[in-house]
Simulated assay, not measured.
Amino acid sequence: MAAGAAAGDRVAVAALDLPDAEVDWPDTGHTVEVHRAVLRREIVAFHVGEEPGEDADLLWFDITEADLVAQHLTDS
Rank of each mutant, 00 (worst) to 15 (best):
E42K: 02
D17F: 05
A7E: 12
V34H: 00
L16R: 08
H47P: 02
A37K: 08
E22V: 00
T74P: 10
A66H: 10
V23P: 02
W25Q: 04
T74N: 14
L18E: 01
A3P: 09
G29S: 07
S76N: 13
A70E: 15
I43Y: 03
A66V: 14
E33M: 03
L18Q: 04
A14W: 04
D20L: 01
A5Q: 11
E50N: 10
H72E: 15
V38P: 01
L68E: 14
V69S: 09
T74L: 15
P19Q: 06
D62V: 07
R40L: 14
A37Y: 07
H30S: 06
T31A: 03
E65I: 07
A5V: 04
A12M: 10
F46T: 04
A6I: 03
S76D: 13
D27C: 08
A45R: 09
A15T: 13
A70S: 13
W25T: 06
Q71R: 14
M1W: 11
L39S: 12
A12F: 10
D27Q: 11
T28P: 00
D55G: 07
L59E: 06
G4F: 06
H47L: 13
V11N: 09
A56P: 00
T31P: 00
A7F: 08
R10C: 07
E50Q: 13
V32W: 00
D9K: 07
D20C: 01
S76A: 15
A5W: 05
L68G: 05
H30A: 09
L39T: 09
E51M: 13
G8F: 03
Q71E: 14
L58T: 02
A2Y: 07
F46A: 05
E65G: 07
E33S: 06
V69N: 08
L73H: 11
I43V: 15
W25P: 01
D55R: 08
L73D: 08
D75M: 12
T74E: 15
V23N: 02
A3E: 14
I63H: 10
E42V: 05
V48S: 02
L58D: 00
D17W: 05
R40N: 13
T31F: 01
V11Y: 04
L58N: 01
V32G: 00
L39R: 14
S76C: 13
P19V: 00
T31Y: 00
P52H: 05
D75W: 12
E22N: 01
A7Q: 12
E22Q: 08
W60Q: 02
D57C: 04
D75Y: 09
D24C: 10
R36K: 07
W60E: 10
R40E: 15
P52I: 05
I43W: 03
V48K: 04
V23H: 00
V11A: 11
G4Y: 03
D67Q: 15
D55T: 11
S76L: 13
E51W: 11
E51Y: 12
V23D: 02
V34W: 01
A56F: 01
A15Y: 11
G4P: 04
R41P: 03
A15S: 11
L58G: 03
H47E: 14
A66I: 12
I63V: 15
R36A: 05
A12G: 09
A70Y: 12
A12R: 06
P26G: 03
T31S: 03
E22M: 00
T74A: 15
E65V: 09
A70I: 15
V48T: 06
T64E: 13
V23A: 02
A45S: 10
